[in-house]
Amino acid sequence: MSKIIVMTSGKGGVGKTTSSAAFATGLALRGFKTVVIDFDVGLRNLDLVMGCERRVVFDFINVINGEAKLNQALIKDKRVENLYILPTSQTRDKDALTKDGVDRILKELVKEFDYVICDSPAGIEKGALMALYFADHAIIVTNPEVSSVRDSDRILGVLNAKSRRAEQGMEPVTQQLLLTRYDPERVEKGEMLKVDDVLEILSINLLGVIPESQAVLRASNIGMPVILDEKSNAGQAYLDAVGRFLGEDVEHRFVKPEKKGLFNRLLRRSA
């Protein structure tokens, strides 16, 4: 079973943190003991998206440096059973992450948790490398846009060459695409790359399509993973993706434009 999952993208701002928070919460909702780790050293944000920013005392780097115990740094989510957050440091730089240090902490976490989700920083440098190095499975977060697709291809190359599994000649890191901020109406008009095109270009399996949604901003404003907003299309799309990740056969939704009847338009305005 895959234990360590990295959310990675190469390009910044495509939805890794949003997706890490949603995915970790989704797995915990299914009863799996799950921890989500912020690897974006210096730019702590996962705590805000998860709504636990005021409960951070110790962080990932403190634990690596032996300044705190793992249990002191882990924050237990107040809404969802089985869900924990390991925040990162806001003051240090990415050099504070060492391969040995990360290895040590992950080994401890894997013993206790069913899933460890690593929220990667942008880029293909040290921080991103550390986040993906120990992964068993990678979720490539991509927007239907040229630079994001190209950067995803680069990060796939890094996974295939520089991850621990690649270096040690083990089974390769399994990879799935999470296409986020998808706008079916713009796709219909030929303004945006469609799912199938992105899949073909990257030759990768599809985990899910998350539509562009106002619910994401709404959720992050109040510090709630969007997957808990079960009425929103983005929340539902993440729930579906978690199901697929667990091997369920879930049909893809939100890839076609909504029907534009008068009734629908009225509904949308009130939503």
Binding site: D153, G157, E191, L193, D197
Partner: peptide
């Protein structure tokens, strides 16, 4: 060609080059 089609074609060309010797 729609902008999306152009995007796809441009990506396929640039990435074919970038993949050599990498993946």
């Amino acid at each position: 060609k729609t902008p999306a089609t152009q995007a796809k074609e441009r990506l396929q060309i640039v990435m074919a080059h970038e993949r050599v010797g990498r993946s």
